[in-house]
């Protein structure tokens, strides 16, 4: 089963990379952008076949390794 995770920076955390991307987009003519925040995307292919169990495990992975909860939030996308 494949489970996807999106990690984003929390609201109050400065994202200099996002800012530079925003400036570059501005320079390219995409001048209606309010803000850009950069994040990370993971696809985890697990042997687990039970949907809920797999999600619980991935949640543990997020808390222990994939995200640093001081600055990041994670969102697990429901497997289809």
């Amino acid at each position: 089963m494949k489970i996807s995770v999106i990690i984003t920076l929390k609201k109050d955390v400065l994202d200099p990379q996002g800012k530079v991307i925003h400036q570059t987009l501005d320079g390219m003519g995409f001048d209606d952008v309010n803000e850009v925040r950069q994040g990370k995307y993971f696809e985890i292919d697990t042997k687990e076949t039970d949907n809920d169990k797999a999600k619980t495990k991935v949640e543990e992975m997020c808390k222990k390794l994939l995200a640093n909860l001081v600055i990041e939030n994670y969102k697990i996308i429901d497997p289809k």
Binding site: V13, L14, P16, Q17, V20, N68, V70, I71
Partner: peptide
């Protein structure tokens, strides 16, 4: 900081 032995995190330098 990743072990949690000291608080906080180290982000990318402000001016990249």
């Amino acid at each position: 900081v990743e072990t949690g032995l000291v608080p906080g995190v180290l982000l990318r330098n402000k001016y990249l």
